[in-house]
Design a protein around this nucleic acid. Sequence first.
DNA 1: CGTTCTTTTGAGACTTATCAAGGATAGTGG
DNA 2: CCACTATCCTTGATAAGTCTCAAAAGAACG
Lengths: 237, 237
Amino acid sequence: MQALREPHGHDVATRQEPGRTARSIATDALAEDDALHLPGRISSFARGNEIYAEGSAMDHLYRVVSGAVRICKVMADGRRQIVEFSVAGDTFGLDGLAAHGFSAEAITATTLVCYPRRQLEEAVRQGGRVARLVERMTLNRLVAAQNCIVMLGRKTAQERVASFLLEMCQRTTLANAGVLMLPMSRYDIADHLGLTVETVSRVLGALRREGAIALADAHNLRVLDRGRLRALSEDRV
Amino acid sequence: MQALREPHGHDVATRQEPGRTARSIATDALAEDDALHLPGRISSFARGNEIYAEGSAMDHLYRVVSGAVRICKVMADGRRQIVEFSVAGDTFGLDGLAAHGFSAEAITATTLVCYPRRQLEEAVRQGGRVARLVERMTLNRLVAAQNCIVMLGRKTAQERVASFLLEMCQRTTLANAGVLMLPMSRYDIADHLGLTVETVSRVLGALRREGAIALADAHNLRVLDRGRLRALSEDRV
DNA sequence: CGTTCTTTTGAGACTTATCAAGGATAGTGG
DNA sequence: CCACTATCCTTGATAAGTCTCAAAAGAACG
């Protein structure tokens, strides 16, 4: 059983950066989104802060402008599962029926555009482009979630890490020299892949030793042998 | 690593009932669906037959009238993951972008209503009730998939089986005397929970011995101690 | 510049998978 | 209708992958 642990004496359930108040540097402004063409409010969150809590009212759709977000659930005993990461360009916020089924937290300093759900539903009721966009968006996330299910249900630790790296390569714009910047910690990666930090670290170490990847530091890596990762990932990413 | 196996000499990838032609007893008729109010065609499938294949054109939405369906993906080496079961009242069929990302197979003799996707998209474009229904439907499935992710990522074998039993209790109408009828095999359950047949069988045996459930036969069980299952499942179903 | 958190690495334990085999079940064919 | 046969289900013994516990080096932050 994947145990709850308190690495060096702090609680897993509240594993986040110290000494910040919630929504500490939230700034508000208005924005017109390219894709949705709906009025939205700009909002910023500091690293580690909660964007919404599990069980709170689900009244906004969010789009990530910059930064990264984790959507997760924490079980009663502290075990955590991150169901998805949202990076620049991704949308999130519709993850329940009436209330949020998951919580959302900023991984790094993050800027979002928030769309009131009421206006969104009104747009859906009206039909047209927005209705199809929202439908398409939700379907995209469903497909992603189902691929995640395959990964968690049937892949080994090595295959999960390989899949994850390839997915992140696709979803983020690589820095010059093809460097992949991973904003999240090893803990976050572990809690997304259904593994422990130690296993994630060991697998990354093994991939480095066999020359599949190169690690500049913990958060910046380069894929040297994409074929090797694709062979491991077992799907055609 | 969860290996492919050929239990008693038949291939895992084609594990289905023998001596049937595809879509053998498919019958067609017209129907007006209560919920969608769209014209649909009635179609039937014999036990074990494929409804659609991974990679085929995604041009219908299906609603289960009777029977049960598994939505799954089979990896190159035969490992299989069932991402969801669909029972009477459930809809399925939208599981990819252009093409199906998964395959669908009838678990037992199954009757479906099929709605052409073109008409559905036209209805979404028009907006109104159907647009919101489709959106709500997809969102429901996304939430279910994300809960499945939590289960696969962070729950023990016992917790997974308990969660599964409770979920099936909620989703199917129990027979008289509160008997839960599970149409799928232990193999199907295992491939849905990310376990092996043996582990599923062992956990069910343990739950039976401790008095949480009673097994009439392999496919008919009664929940005796729901509190125990809920404690194990770790979520509030 | 100390403190806290993160990352890595090692040794051992444990859950679940694998291999094996007998018994139960359900369609199949005579 | 009953025996046949393929598949499914269960149980046991062993193996393996990953987790747990422990500790030290490295990075981030105030």
